[in-house]
Design a protein around this nucleic acid. Structure first.
Lengths: 207, 207, 207, 207
DNA sequence: GATGAATGAGTTTTCATTCAT
DNA sequence: CATGAATGAAAACTCATTCAT
């Protein structure tokens, strides 16, 4: 604690090594998750895959769950990054553009390490971390809400928050299913178009 | 022996006892799943909760997984029953009625033993049985497709199958999220209304 | 007990059924031993293979071991029969004839259900019954001793009993090894010839 | 860490500890085999007898069988050592000496931990390791064959290999029986003498 | 800190045996 | 007697976690 505030960078090396070790361990965890699934992901296997002693794993992670949780969190961070990048351009977009952006963003999210994503979604018991995954949507909801409210006049949306929640839930639900069930017959372009139609018609309202 | 010759020719006692035992065991499994989650749902605990010897559990279920799978299947069957009941009335419905029916049906589905549903959805690794859950949606997709096609003139749907798939995925995604995250603030009535709007506007198309 | 002494053959049928059942069970035991080995030979499997309820097995056999013991005993009886048949002709034989007879007899013994023999020898822990197998040799030792003593003049044998024991042990040891190791290269005819030479030279003594 | 830098460069402590543990476990296995027989030799009992956690047993032995197999192998090694020692002197021996040597050697072999030997021979199902036991005989067969061939002129042996195989099988068979049946009446000295006679007469042939 | 041997509670699973029907 | 469902002690084996070095 105190160390962090010291000026001397002497202790840096050890800190760097720590970081690197944590990184190695987490990458190994992800690899093991991919290879052996959640049930097969034992701490010993992780240690071995990381080329690190089991003791070192416990130096940095209090228990098995924390390993997987951290892998999930890291994955979330990547997803969040992808989303943020897309949503930055949202502000001054037209309805069509905005919707397109949103759909592309969510599609792109599912392209980040899809295999790991799948394992995390399919196999990991819904421990605390998964909630975090959903909570993340909450993070950019305000953005969407803001956009809707600033385009009120073109839309037919009684409750912007409600509409946002619903749309995100719906789109995410659809994408989840696309990527988990992999109905390969489904053309991704077509899907995107239809999703856009779904959103636009909902926001515009029915005449 | 004696039993077979008695007045009660209703059912082979042995068969009845078996059925009852299986039932007791599965109910105990569900209870344990609720109380201790998937990881805590051990065969010994199930046996104890069922007030049955561990040997009896293995008499009817070859391994731990088969227990949970069977619980899932039973749950599916109940869900399927609820859905069927609702969808029977679909045929001659107007657009508004049909959509209302569909939404209510899917809401009702999530009201069948919601706690068990939650555990099964949240915690059970996505083993074979879960796919069955999704497959079940597929079972009633044709019904919806048929309805859409017989109402072509009132709708703006280029591809009935695609639209059906999308809508079901979206609605299910939304409901899943409602029931898993339990954002208690959300009013169910309001949600239903909005879902109906979502569907109707998508099907009607935008002018 | 009393029943056995009664004159009326009324109860015969049930007795006959019992015998048949015992026979069916033992044959099933042998089959299971062949198919699944000793460790895989469980009472339930035997019952199933016999097409009989497990309860019935325990009606006639107090425990698992007794099943296997009885199979061994039956096997012994067959072996004994083969031996007896051969050894009857021993009495007036010349040295060469006698030795030939003995060797052929012991070879023939190993041809009685060789697969079962092998399983019994290889896999069954040396429970009581195996001793019986050896004890059986003791049964016909006197015959050989008698023959040796009645041919004293042609032989150089200080102690007939000792010599008999030694020869039988040696021949049996050799045959056991032949049939367990199955060195297929070994020609059976040649082996028989050599065994005869071994015996004859030992009995005749060295000049 | 500290240990490695200390003065004792004899052996890696970890390695030594491992070796010792393996040794303790195997000795415990032998003890349990003696006390409870093969069927009673469970991994838990072995662990308890070794004063070691069951986990440690599985650290070094993948399953129960491997424990017994290793005990057998160790026993084999001891037997092999005894044999080698004796057979070294074979080369320049006369017929009488050579035969005496062989018989003594095989007698001595059966005096190495005879109780363990008995359990291993009697109770252990004929798993892989037992074949090893026989295979070991094969190892010194060439020595005997060589000796026979270099003494051809004094002997009457058409096929040295065949003769060797036969003699070893016979002698081993006899000894096995002696030590398994323990016919205490049998005088070991006398037995040795007779075995020698058996061998010598066979090799010399009958005039 | 790093190591990895050691731990042992806890799992799954088997199977000889009993006993109500 | 026959049945076979039910039993439960006990076996094999796993794996998160600790701790001496």
């Amino acid at each position: 604690m105190a160390g962090k505030r010291l000026v001397t960078p002497r202790k840096e090396p050890s800190q760097r090594r720590s970081r690197e070790l944590v990184d190695i361990i987490l990458k190994a965890t992800a690899r093991v998750l991919l290879k052996d699934g959640y049930e097969g992901c034992t701490t010993n296997r992780v240690a071995e895959a990381a080329g690190v002693s089991i003791g070192s794993v416990y130096q940095y992670f209090p228990n098995k769950e924390s390993l997987v949780v951290r892998v999930m969190e890291r994955h979330q961070e990547k997803l969040r990054a992808v989303l943020s990048e897309h949503l930055l351009t949202l502000q001054n977009a037209t309805l069509q553009q905005a919707v397109k952006t949103l759909v592309r963003a969510m599609l792109d999210v599912h392209r980040v390490e899809p295999k790991l994503h799948r394992v995390l979604m399919e196999q990991v018991p819904r421990i605390g971390a998964l909630k975090a995954l959903h909570a993340q949507h909450a993070a950019y909801e305000p953005l969407v809400v803001a956009w809707i409210e600033s385009h009120r006049d073109q839309l037919d949306v009684p409750d912007a928050k409600m509409a946002t929640w619903l749309l995100i839930a719906a789109v995410d639900g659809v994408l989840q299913r696309v990527f988990l069930d992999r109905p390969s017959s489904l053309d991704e372009e077509q899907l995107a178009t239809e999703l856009e139609r779904l959103i636009v018609s909902y926001l515009r309202g029915v005449t």
